[in-house]
């Protein structure tokens, strides 16, 4: 669907994007992950034709950027970062303008589409408000409606959830997941859990380069670094440590801040990534301590992200 070869962008002498190559297949949800200033927005802006690449090629379906820019633009729905829209226009007027520009000439078709979109994005109560008076989350939804106006095959979303409250984030994620079943979606974020929850594939960008590009599952398996969180009631720290040490000699046991008062908590890691939860449970069952928490936490993505994007001083 989208093929990018050696994409490079210079701002004067500063290289924002450095020879990025990737292929995005049809129906995939790709998350572009990276720290601030890594080149995510620049990459997306080149994909949408807002920036001209300094070098490299972009091929979308069988069309080439920038020769077929106008056809490509009509295939793509794009939500820029923080949805910069015309502040003085009413939501309805704005959507009407966008629909006309995007070639929905028939008045009834436009109206039907507005109804669908206002259902999907929850716009019905704000249709007659000026965009400038809307809150950030509502603006983001208007932007999303703008991007989905013609039901495009490709959606490109630049940090669609940044600056939103947790409820709005969940709503936007749901929308992305719903429409992602039929569409190709590329979105950027710096929230790891978000990428993990919504993307089929993750590309991590740092300093303008792709440092990792794989399916979410593969990335997680690559670096196994799960740890077990354990909290006990009625036990003393030393007894518990001794007991846990007795399970396996490989276990690394750190006591951490307890999650509640009069509890003791540990973080347990094993060297060879075996799952010791059942052993731990059986051992504790023999005592008269109360088991409050025994959970496995995977920090694969976070660890990979930190390692790949660490500042080298």
């Amino acid at each position: 669907m989208i093929e990018v070869q050696n994409l490079t962008k210079y701002y004067k002498d500063f290289c924002a994007v450095n020879k990025i190559s990737m292929t995005i297949r049809k129906g995939e949800i790709l998350g572009l992950l990276g720290p601030n200033g890594a080149g995510k927005t620049t990459t997306l802006r080149m994909l949408t034709g807002f920036f001209r690449p300094s070098s490299g090629t972009i091929k979308i379906k069988d069309l080439h950027m920038p020769e077929d820019a106008i056809q490509i633009k009509s295939l793509i729905g794009y939500l820029p970062e923080s949805a910069p829209l015309y502040h003085n226009m009413l939501v309805y007027d704005y959507l009407d303008y966008v629909a006309k520009i995007k070639g929905i000439d028939d008045k009834e078709k436009r109206y039907d589409r507005f109804l669908q979109l206002s259902d999907l994005c929850g716009l019905s109560s704000i249709m007659s408000q000026p965009i400038g008076t809307l809150s950030k989350g509502l603006k983001q939804r208007v932007g999303l409606a703008h991007a989905m106006m013609t039901d495009p095959e490709i959606l490109i979303l630049d940090e669609p959830t940044s600056g939103l409250d947790p409820n709005q984030i969940a709503e936007i994620r749901d929308i992305i997941k719903t429409i992602g079943k039929q569409k190709t979606i590329v979105f950027s974020t710096h929230i790891l859990s978000e990428a993990e929850a919504t993307c089929d594939r993750i590309a991590i960008i740092n300093k303008g380069r792709v440092v990792a590009d794989d399916t979410t599952l593969n990335l997680k398996q690559k670096e196994q670094s799960s740890s077990i969180k354990l909290s006990l009631k009625g036990a003393s720290k030393d007894d518990a440590t001794a007991l846990l040490k007795g399970i396996h000699s490989d276990l690394v046991i750190n006591d951490v801040e307890p999650i509640e008062e009069d509890l003791i908590s540990f973080e347990i890691k094993s060297m060879d990534n075996q799952d010791f939860r059942s052993d731990i449970y059986l051992k504790i069952k023999e005592t008269d301590w109360i088991l409050v928490q025994l959970t496995k936490e995977s920090q694969a993505l976070e660890k990979i992200f930190r390692e790949l994007t660490r500042e080298e001083n």
């Binding site: 802006r45 034709g49 807002f50 106008i70 820029p80 910069p84 829209l85 502040h87 520009i101 995007k102």
Partner: peptide, 14 residues
């Protein structure tokens, strides 16, 4: 200034 230029340029217009 408000950034809507980006929205405008990424719509199918020359």
């Amino acid at each position: 200034n408000i950034g809507s230029y980006e929205v405008l340029l990424t719509m199918p217009v020359s």
